[in-house]
Nucleic acid binder design. Structure first.
Lengths: 111, 111
DNA sequence: GTTTTTAGTTCCTATTTGGAATTTGATAAC
DNA sequence: GTTATCAAATTCCAAATAGGAACTAAAAAC
């Protein structure tokens, strides 16, 4: 089965994951919760390629999780912000945050 | 940045996602919470290729999220079960479940 | 008119995935 | 003993996706 077919799956979890379950999307959302909003901020923070970042942002806007709006004219510059729909995913990220802190301590160099 | 380098990221969310943030892993965990435990059950339910499924299960066992144990000898057959560490990810799946129910209604044929 | 800033797009290569068939190890039927 | 079956994978190849760097665009600063 192709990943893209999951959006009509019988299971709500699968349908949700068809949008946010991919490699970088949840990290973009994490950044949004941390207050980041600009393309370059995401690019630097996350480390995904601009190519992938561009695709993910587009999808997140299409699905109403993020909102794209111009924050200045001439030249037009856009920023991305969580919608209320997007904010509802916050608790999942909190679970991952706590889980990571507890179960995945950072490996130290020359540890 | 490569996905595999995330496991030492400064952010606990990123570290967690380096394991469970990929395409099919969270669906395997969903299945585990639903009581499924065998390779063939996952394969049928999730629709991922056996190749990918095999890789994901291996990683989940290596990271202590699932436990692999023989449920019969001659021939040896294995099943996978959530560890307590794995069970702690349940709340995240619940968030996705509720979010999917609310925001991603199933498209009906000829809708 | 060259450089800078921000937000992407394009190009090429390398990795990963999808899908089907095959393997492995053991039992059961013939 | 060979054929069939089951569960749990592994292997193969073509196709899709990602990684990385360079390039484009539009206006402003110099």
């Amino acid at each position: 089965m192709k990943w893209s077919e999951l959006d009509d799956n019988w299971c709500p979890v699968a349908r949700t994951l068809s949008i946010v379950g991919d490699r970088w999307t949840l990290l973009i959302l994490r950044d949004c919760f941390l207050g980041r909003s600009k393309f370059e901020e995401f690019a630097e923070s996350i480390g995904a390629t601009r190519h992938v970042l561009s695709n993910r942002l587009k999808r997140l806007v299409e699905t109403g999780i993020l909102e794209k709006r111009a924050y200045q004219q001439r030249p037009v510059r856009y920023e991305y912000a969580l919608t209320s729909k997007g904010k509802e995913l916050g608790p999942a990220l909190e679970v991952f945050l706590k889980w990571g802190r507890k179960h995945m301590p950072v490996r130290r160099a020359a540890g």
